[in-house]
């Protein structure tokens, strides 16, 4: 993947497949590190499955025998001297899956974060019936979006109506502009 934002899009798609109603995408940046957390309240995975997901030759897809999403993100983090963790629960209040990747931003193999706005817009366009919480914080401030809040205003108007999608993209881009 050329940008981490593409890994984010890819991993968050897994949450949709796991029937999550809320997917949280949290980016925390300091001078030297980036912590990415993608957390959902989906069906979760058994311990057995969890042990397999970082193996490229494990996949849920039926069209092919290779699943590269999780291994690619793990590699992107570890190649910067960072770390990768995935936890999951199939029952209880904390049901769901949480993926955490830590990156060394100053490492030569650090993949640029890229266009997060585009990834968030794409996720909402494809999954207007589920909710997303996006937060990207760094030294100069924070960018955030909570579709639950937008849904409260929009009522029956779907989140993937073009006017709404366009507004979300501009709303996020403007927040990023203000960080600079």
């Amino acid at each position: 993947m050329k940008e981490l934002s593409l890994n984010i899009l890819d991993i968050a798609e897994n949450s949709q497949k796991a029937k999550a109603t809320l997917t949280e995408i949290i980016l925390n940046e300091t001078e030297d590190t980036l912590i990415l957390e993608i957390k959902d309240n989906g069906t979760g995975m058994s311990e057995q499955t969890l042990n397999c997901v970082t193996d490229p030759f494990y996949t849920t897809r039926t069209t092919r025998n290779v699943g590269l999403g999780i291994p690619l993100l793990k590699l992107a983090a570890e190649q910067t001297g960072g770390s990768f963790k995935i936890t999951s629960k199939t029952e209880g209040e904390s049901r769901g899956t949480c993926v955490t990747a830590v990156f060394n931003k100053n490492h030569i193999d650090f993949t640029p974060i890229g266009d997060t706005v585009s990834s968030i817009v794409t996720l909402i366009q494809g999954h207007p019936e589920t909710d997303f919480l996006f937060k990207h914080s760094c030294n100069s401030g924070e960018v955030s979006l909570d579709t639950r809040e937008l849904r409260g205003i929009l009522g029956e108007v779907p989140l993937n109506s073009y006017e709404v999608i366009k507004w979300i993209g501009e709303y996020l881009s403007e927040q990023y502009e203000n960080l600079k």
Partner: peptide
């Protein structure tokens, strides 16, 4: 197609272009 393979190959801008052009072209 928006699986890992599609995303890595550049599906995100393709999707967003379709969404944009279909609406701007009055095809919605």
């Amino acid at each position: 197609g928006m699986a890992t393979c599609g995303i890595a190959a550049g599906a995100r801008p393709v999707l967003n272009t379709f969404v944009e052009e279909v609406n701007n072209g009055g095809l919605a």
